[in-house]
Design a protein around this nucleic acid. Structure first.
Lengths: 125, 125
DNA sequence: GCTTGACTTGGAGCGCACTCCAAGGGGTAG
DNA sequence: CTACCCCTTGGAGTGCGCTCCAAGTCAAGC
């Protein structure tokens, strides 16, 4: 599939796809007869995984490290698993933090609702 | 309290505190006899709230809008509550997304564990 | 009186993650 | 043959959220 299709299917711009290739997140794509990039299903799977890492707050720099390990093959299985378990901890921490914040927000909105009925202003927040 | 104490208590740099004042997130701080900023408890509470908004992904731009509304007083209570309820939705969405990703990560790590025992490479991720 | 250190201001610089641009090429429709 | 559109490359530009810097002020300690 062409880069435009790949971009559309993964929800990013063609520029971003080329950018990801340039920095080593995506392997250099195969080319068709006229030199255009050609993507397959495997690329979609890999890209989906990359997007999962991004959305969960992994930096491009760390993703590149992971991609390099992947390129190196079987000998890096443990290193990759270690990266993922470390990352999973950050995701768990984000979840904890976010749940905390959600509770705080709920509370604050309740205060606002009460203030709106009372026509008063909350203090310092 | 001095800016250094305020910064230390809130876990940011003094530069960031001044930056937040410059862009209107923090109100212009009162000054002591020698022109140095002087912070009170109310500032700590407000700053803690700002940090909560930041950590939950609100942009500085939107936080500034909220801060402006707050400066305008009681007439903006509804507008502020509306901002917070809209933001709460984004937090809920983040939570959903993050839980999803955590499950996916767990799954992937299990696959890695199995591969490491088998000395095989997972495909495309 | 002099040094030290924390503060002040305005403005420049930085790292990140894209995003856009210019110049050129290839394949297809009319 | 020409127009059009999507592709290519290398490189420049952008917005965000800080972070750092230079030059100057002020109070306290020696």
């Amino acid at each position: 599939m062409k880069i435009s299709d790949f971009a559309q299917k993964t929800g990013v711009s063609a520029d971003t796809v080329r950018y990801y290739e340039r920095i080593g997140l995506l392997p250099r794509a195969g080319r068709d007869a006229s030199g255009h990039r050609d993507y397959g299903e495997g690329d979609l799977v890999w890209m989906a995984f990359l997007q999962r890492l991004r959305k969960t707050g992994m930096s491009i720099r760390d993703m590149t490290r992971y991609a390099v390990l992947r390129d190196e093959g079987d000998t890096t299985l443990q290193a990759r698993r270690d990266m993922l378990t470390a990352h999973r901890k950050t995701v768990r921490d984000q979840l904890t933090e976010l749940r905390h914040s959600l509770t705080a927000l709920d509370q604050k909105i309740r205060i606002y609702d009460a203030m709106i009925i009372q026509e008063k202003d909350p203090q310092n927040d």
